[in-house]
């Protein structure tokens, strides 16, 4: 059973007749690809996610981590659970206003990159692929912005992908270098590099699905890297390993 994007959008908007909508619901229960498509098409999810992901702030998280995850937490556990019950009864106020005063977590950068990348389609890359000369200039400009050498041959290390374009973007106050690739089917991928922040990627690469895309992130000194694209975490992991070895 196949459904067009238009039909799935109509389903999400409640504009399909009950029979057809019920059919899609039933199919989704057994067809994970369809479920993924429907979720990716949902026009409400993205804006809601963007807004909600700004919560909670760092202050709130640090406070909870200190309270619940400090080395002495086990001794405090029974006391804490009792306090939770007491708060339910008394409605104690604990500086609620301050709890909203934080900023997005530093590691949200991966989600932001993945979200940006999720807007890429095959034509985005096809129509903007740089010539060899332009690519050389773009890499030079990116290296200058980043404050780190970037070598064309290193960027071409993933043999299964074709290097298409390099551009300088910004992430908060830091440069964000986006190196765009495409596979034989035209599917877009990107390696993004940024600086600073308090990223917790670590030197070991970690992979996760973000905004429907496979991502693998790691850190090297002051530089943070993420390879993003497609839906295959093992593939982004493999390519990330290739890039880590040469960058």
């Amino acid at each position: 059973m196949t459904y067009s994007d238009q039909e799935l959008l109509a389903f999400l908007n409640g504009e399909l007749d009950d029979r057809r909508a019920g059919e899609i619901e039933q199919t989704m229960r057994v067809d994970q690809d369809l479920e993924s498509r429907v979720m990716a098409l949902d026009p409400v999810a993205g804006p809601v996610r963007d807004a909600m992901m700004s919560l909670p702030g760092d202050q709130v998280l640090r406070r909870i981590e200190d309270a619940a995850l400090s080395p002495r937490q086990s001794q405090r556990e029974s006391r804490h659970l009792a306090r939770f019950a007491a708060v339910l009864v008394l409605g104690a106020t604990l500086g609620a206003g301050a709890m909203w005063l934080g900023t997005p977590r530093a590691d949200d950068w991966r989600g932001r990159v993945a979200q940006y990348q999720s807007l890429y389609v095959a034509d985005t890359v096809r129509l903007t692929t740089a010539s060899s000369d332009a690519l050389t200039r773009q890499i030079g400009a990116a290296a200058d912005s980043l404050g780190r050498p970037l070598d064309l041959s290193a960027l071409e290390a993933p043999s299964s992908l074709k290097l298409a374009r390099v551009q300088v973007l910004g992430l908060d106050e830091a440069p964000l270098i986006q190196i765009v690739y495409t596979d034989d089917d035209g599917k877009p991928y990107a390696l993004c590099i940024t600086t600073g922040g308090e990223g917790d990627e670590g030197s070991d690469a970690s992979s996760e699905m973000l905004h429907g895309l496979a991502t693998t992130a790691w850190q090297d000194g002051d530089f943070r890297f993420i390879f993003v694209g497609g839906e295959d975490l093992s593939k982004t992991g493999r390519i990330a390993d290739q890039l880590k070895a040469v960058l």
Partner: peptide, 9 residues
């Protein structure tokens, strides 16, 4: 906040 802490514990 309290529920988050309790969940971690």
């Amino acid at each position: 906040n309290d529920l988050s802490q309790s969940t971690c514990l």
